[in-house]
Design a protein around this nucleic acid. Structure first.
Length: 455
RNA sequence: GAGGGCAUAGCUCAGUAGGUUAGAGCGACAGUUUGUGGCACUGUAGGUCGUGGGUUCGAGACCCAUUGUUCUCCCCA
């Protein structure tokens, strides 16, 4: 047996990391619950049909497929070889694989809504926190298994959803202590820009190029636009658009001049203004920023789009989302609109680690360690341990009758704040010695005093 | 899909121009010290140098291949 190892792009999480990650999950979960979102969990695997073709050609390649069982059955080997040849010819894969690991949470959610829409109370608000898998080449901050954390509302066209989702973002990051900017734009505004630049068919080219602005800079974006077939005049218009700056109000008024009478564009501006103004007098408004350079790569967005950036950290977006019109159309259930957001848990973790935002309490494990000084002594200790555990205090009895030295070291390593010592003398008197391992102070307590001790 | 870097003890890494018996720190274990820890000191264990070939009198080091890992680009979270 060779050295055990981990599949590429996966990670083990040790205790302190799990605790910190759970702290993020719990915060997100409790805020989502307080906004009326309900939990949903879907299977790790979906039918391959459900996933294929939903993420574009590149995405299809990154779906982890699960090999069918029974392919090694001698009676079926000819069939298996025949199916394999079909795959080599680029044809269907049913004979060898018909299931795959979930690639994101959105399509499984759409599948769920399509299957259950008749029973669901609309608008339906769900959140989902589960791992997803991608056969991507791992690199910094990118893994083959990672968690997504999504909240979506389907069956409602109301902009109040966007208002609440912006609020939800602000609330979660306030609770986590991360100072953020919530950037907002509207796909309708980008669509208007495309129309002004000569045609709606240019929309995808324009959004893909603009999406890279942060990364590659204005000049490179212009080059890319040129490569994608836009002429100098059109690029000039886009540049004017990208250079719009100032406060939210100033930006919108500049944009209105540029957009002019374009109907889609004005609708988009109106929606954006409405959501921004809704938050005028609360803590959310200081975080909201109209940003017309925000594009987002995914093409299914049709209305307002979001992206969250941490203000004090070098890090890409730590959250994103937007409105899409026809989530379940691909499953033949038309006319269910939706809007959703997502939290980038791994990146949020990195930001919080960098800025040291995890509270110390996150790490507390065992509160008290009972020393083991022999069979009779440890029996007395064990019954006290159980009583403390029943009171919700994390307690342990050291399992070996080892030297003091060793038991102390165990407590140190696990950062256990209290030690309780029951020796022959204490055993006779029904008392314990409790020692604060940080200060070194110790005192003698009766057993009943120990049970009401403030740990 | 394309292109780089790295691979030596449980962990982090040294290892000069190829030359005897491959080192350090941390960690583990034991002792100083069997009812009071963290420190200190002393000692012990732990390596077929990722794998397979090749060059050489001689390879941890050089060459080729292979596997793993990591990073960049594409794409994405």
């Amino acid at each position: 047996m060779s050295k055990p190892s981990l599949p590429q792009g996966t990670r083990d999480f040790s205790a302190s990391i799990v605790r910190k990650r759970n702290y993020i999950f719990q915060t997100v979960r409790s805020v989502m619950e307080s906004y009326g979102f309900q939990p949903l969990e879907t299977p790790a695997m979906e039918n391959l049909d459900t996933l294929m073709g939903k993420y574009g050609e590149e995405g299809d390649k990154l779906i982890f497929k699960i090999l069918n069982n029974g392919l090694d059955n001698p009676a079926k080997q000819d069939q298996a070889k025949f199916e394999f040849d079909k795959i080599l010819a680029g044809k269907n894969t049913k004979g060898l694989t018909e299931r795959a690991l979930r690639y994101d949470l959105t399509i499984p959610f759409a599948r769920y809504v399509a299957m259950n829409h008749a029973q669901l109370t609309m608008p339906f608000k769900r959140y989902q926190i589960q791992p997803v898998w991608r056969a991507d080449r791992p690199q910094k901050g990118r893994y083959r298994e990672f968690y997504q954390c999504d909240a979506d509302v389907v069956g409602s066209y109301s902009l109040l959803n966007e208002v609440e989702l912006a609020n939800l973002y602000a609330e979660v990051f306030k609770q986590l202590g991360v100072d953020v900017t919530i950037k907002m734009n509207n796909r309708k505004i980008l669509a208007a820009l495309a129309e002004i630049c000569g045609g709606a068919d240019k929309l995808v080219n324009i959004t893909v190029a603009i999406d890279k602005l942060d990364k590659i800079g204005l000049e490179k974006v212009k080059e890319e636009l040129s490569e994608r077939g836009l002429d100098a005049n059109q690029i000039n218009t886009i540049e004017t658009y990208l250079l719009i700056d100032g406060s939210n109000e100033e930006k919108i008024s500049s944009l209105k001049k540029l957009i002019g009478e374009n109907e889609t564009g004005n609708k988009g501006i109106k929606e954006l203004e409405w959501v921004l103004n809704y938050h005028q007098h609360n803590f959310v408004s200081t975080h909201l920023q109209a940003d017309f350079t925000l594009a987002r790569g995914l093409n299914y967005y049709t209305g307002i789009i979001f992206e969250v950036k941490a203000n004090n950290a070098q890090m890409g977006s730590i959250g994103g989302g937007g409105r899409y019109d026809d989530l379940t159309g691909t499953f033949d259930v038309p006319n269910i609109p939706g809007v959703g957001i997502s939290f980038g848990v791994d990146r949020i973790y990195d930001v919080m680690e960098e800025l040291q935002l995890f509270p110390a309490e996150v790490q507390t494990g065992t509160k008290v360690l009972f020393f083991n000084l022999g069979d009779a002594e440890s029996r007395a200790a064990y019954s006290l341990v159980q009583l403390l555990r029943n009171k919700g205090i994390a307690a342990e009895l050291f399992h070996e009758n080892s030297k003091f030295d060793k038991q102390f070291k165990y407590a140190d390593k696990k950062q256990i704040p209290y030690a309780v010592i029951i020796g022959s003398k204490e055993l006779l008197e029904n008392t314990v010695v409790i020692k604060n391992l940080l200060t070194g102070d110790q005192q003698s307590l009766t057993n009943s005093e120990l049970l009401s001790f403030a740990f």
